[in-house]
Amino acid sequence: VDYIVEYDYDAQHDDELTIRKGDIIKNVKKLEEEGWLEGELNGKRGMFPDNFVKEIK
């Protein structure tokens, strides 16, 4: 499942992704941690907030 970024987010920890509006995040999975998703961007896998992105259908 792929998501498109709607709002910029700067990573706060090493396991998070810095994302920018218009980025496409690939292979996204829901995490047990409420409010977070995990996906791949530019060869890096990491977490990001689910309210900054929208699923591409």
Rank of each mutant, 00 (worst) to 15 (best):
G22L: 05
G22H: 06
I19M: 15
L17H: 06
E34M: 14
Y9F: 12
K44S: 13
A11I: 02
I25R: 00
D15M: 12
Y9G: 01
I56Y: 11
D23Q: 15
I4M: 09
T18Y: 06
E16V: 06
F48M: 09
V28N: 02
K44L: 12
D10L: 13
I24T: 04
D15F: 12
I25W: 00
E33N: 10
Q12P: 03
K44N: 13
N27I: 04
H13D: 10
N27R: 13
M47H: 07
I4F: 11
V1H: 10
V28R: 00
I24P: 02
V5G: 14
V28K: 01
I4G: 10
G39N: 00
A11M: 12
D23H: 08
W36R: 07
K57Y: 15
D50L: 14
K54P: 02
T18A: 05
T18R: 04
R45E: 05
I19T: 02
L37H: 05
K29I: 12
K21Q: 11
K26T: 14
K54W: 05
G43I: 02
N51G: 10
E16F: 06
W36A: 03
K57E: 15
E34G: 08
V53I: 03
R20A: 09
G46D: 01
Y7M: 14
R20N: 08
V1D: 06
E34A: 12
E6N: 04
E34Q: 13
G39P: 00
K26E: 06
G22P: 01
E40F: 11
K21M: 10
P49L: 14
D14H: 14
E55Y: 02
Q12W: 07
V53H: 02
E32F: 13
V5F: 01
E32S: 13
D50T: 09
G46E: 00
D23W: 12
I25A: 01
I4L: 10
W36G: 01
E40K: 06
D50R: 15
L17S: 01
D10G: 06
A11N: 05
R45D: 02
K54G: 05
E38P: 00
D8L: 03
K29W: 14
Y3A: 14
K57H: 15
D10Y: 15
T18W: 05
P49S: 15
K30T: 09
L41V: 09
I25P: 02
W36E: 01
V5I: 02
E6I: 15
L31Y: 07
Y3S: 04
G39K: 00
L37W: 04
H13M: 08
N27E: 11
D50N: 12
V1N: 12
Y7Q: 14
Y3G: 04
E16W: 03
E55G: 02
G46P: 00
I24L: 06
N51D: 15
E38Y: 11
F52E: 04
R45K: 11
N51R: 13
I25V: 12
E16Y: 07
I19R: 00
E16G: 10
R45I: 09
E34H: 12
V53G: 11
E34F: 06
G39R: 00
N42F: 10
G22D: 07
D23N: 06
E33W: 12
F48H: 00
K30N: 10
I56F: 07
E34W: 04
K29V: 11
H13I: 08
K44T: 14
N27T: 08
V28I: 04
W36T: 05
Y7E: 15
D15R: 13
W36V: 07
Y7S: 14
K29Y: 14
L37F: 05
L31N: 13
H13Q: 12
D10M: 13
G43S: 09
H13Y: 13
L31Q: 11
K30I: 08
L37I: 05
E32Q: 14
E40Q: 11
R45G: 03
W36I: 07
V1M: 07
R45F: 11
K57F: 15
L37R: 03
W36S: 03
V28S: 09
V1P: 14
E38V: 12
T18V: 07
E40W: 14
I24G: 02
G39Y: 00
E6R: 05
I56K: 02
K29R: 12
Y9A: 03
I24A: 02
K26V: 13
K26Y: 14
K21T: 09
H13W: 09
D2A: 15
N27K: 09
Q12N: 08
D14R: 13
V1K: 14
M47E: 06
I24M: 05
P49Y: 12
H13P: 01
P49V: 04
I25M: 05
G35Y: 04
G39M: 00
E38F: 08
R20L: 10
V1A: 14
